[in-house]
Design a protein around this nucleic acid. Structure first.
Lengths: 171, 171
DNA sequence: GGACGATATTTGAAATGTCAAAGGTTTGGG
DNA sequence: CCCAAACCTTTGACATTTCAAATATCGTCC
């Protein structure tokens, strides 16, 4: 019997498992964060160079693009995961550039609805096409089956995180 | 929205399924981004509430913690993926709080080396322990095998992205 | 030894980000 | 009707972020 050999292997696995098991979540987080930063920086650079736009502006316009009726600023804030005060400034600048229009509905004067202008729609749709291509290029070396798996499993992470938030978040 | 007719829902699933193959990378990116934002916001909130610190400060201190000799600001910039100018301000504020110390070595007066103070080390090690726990909690519902898989596969994504950057990045 | 290119950090302008507090508006009891 | 609670957005103080330009120092070549 090769009992002594397999005992060593088992020990290594155990030790390794003990080391990695401890901080596995931390390591995943650090890798997710650095990868996200890397991709964000690349997209930001290209948006700037090729379209003179910023990433937060692009994100905000993306939300408005699929809600042609426009969105309240509060709703925009939730969807872009950006604070209310920040949305105010973003919409202000986009309005100054003629890409977005602000309207206060008759029914409720507390509300401001933001909506893409015709110019905004044209501008965004060009950026969106390029944006999608950039992502395909950046992930070109990753097997599509893996991409799909990642999409699913990161969904599980997001779901777990959502269920363990400290704040008063139960909407 | 209204849960009116299941026929509509089925149609949506079919249509969505056809679209999925096309924009898989885009959808992965959007999910990565939103998940990362979610986790960041949670960590930020807890760092603020429990330690009065910010996330970038924590990140910077983490780098210094494992280099007890300290790091040049340029090296800090690379490791934290933060621009040079930004590091200057971060270190300034941390120094004002007595957590970090700046030293100019004798050999080269262009250089500034940042180093944790004793107070900084104590402060960071408390935050680090909590931080690791937060991540374990947030990801508690995810199978450790999946966490491990994600860690590996996101590594593949990062690698692919690194090989398809537009900038003059070849270090 | 003085000019020049390379290196390292700082500065400045503009945008983005958080949070808390303040402004208006609407709504719902009393 | 009126006031208080709830809602939506804006404002203000600060921190972080990027980029580009400016500073300062080093090393080298002539």
């Amino acid at each position: 019997m090769a009992e002594s050999e397999s005992a060593i292997v088992d020990l290594e696995i155990i030790v390794q498992g003990a080391q990695e098991g401890k901080k596995l979540e931390l390591r995943l987080w650090l890798r997710m964060l650095s990868t996200t930063k890397l991709i964000s920086q690349e997209i930001r650079r290209r948006l700037r160079n090729e379209f003179g736009a910023t990433l937060p502006q692009f994100d905000l316009m993306a939300q408005l693009y699929r809600e042609r009726e426009g969105l309240r600023l509060g709703e925009l804030s939730k969807r872009t995961m950006v604070t209310n005060g920040n949305v105010t400034g973003l919409v202000e600048r986009l309005e100054a550039d003629g890409l977005v229009q602000r309207v206060t509905p008759d029914g409720d004067r507390r509300v401001t609805v933001a909506k893409l202008t015709a110019k905004g729609e044209t501008s965004f749709s060009a950026m969106a096409a390029a944006h999608e291509g950039w992502l395909r290029d950046m992930m070109a070396d990753v097997d599509p089956a893996i991409v799909r798996e990642l999409w699913r499993d990161i969904g599980a992470v997001k779901s777990s995180v959502s269920n363990h938030l400290s704040g008063t978040d139960f909407d």
